[in-house]
Amino acid sequence: MTATLLLWSIFLAQILLVAAMACATFRVLRGPRAQDRVLGLDTLYVNATMLLLTFGIRTGSTLYFEAALIIALLGFVATAALAKFLMRGEVIE
């Protein structure tokens, strides 16, 4: 019974997260300016981190946690570098 409850709630949560990722992708593709696209990328990787965590709960393995941690790390570096690029026109001065 608990397995059924958990499977359905994980499935529903994954659908909600994929819908959230679709909204962020829409903003990346359609954003009126460059900063909207960068913010969309930021939202996209946060949602992807959550989706990987739900996969980890579903399969019971900790491998997904490490993938989520790497996505969070690389996403922060990418967003910071892109914001720096938008401000200065170059990443490393």
């Binding site: 409850l5 994980i10 949560a13 994954q14 909600l16 959230a20 990722m21 959550m50």
Partner: peptide, 19 residues
């Protein structure tokens, strides 16, 4: 666990819709 998962996913979806 189920309630927290649904709460987190709903909040992410609400934030993205607002976005």
């Amino acid at each position: 666990v189920a309630l927290l998962l649904l709460l987190g996913a709903s909040l992410a979806l609400i934030g993205s819709i607002g976005f």
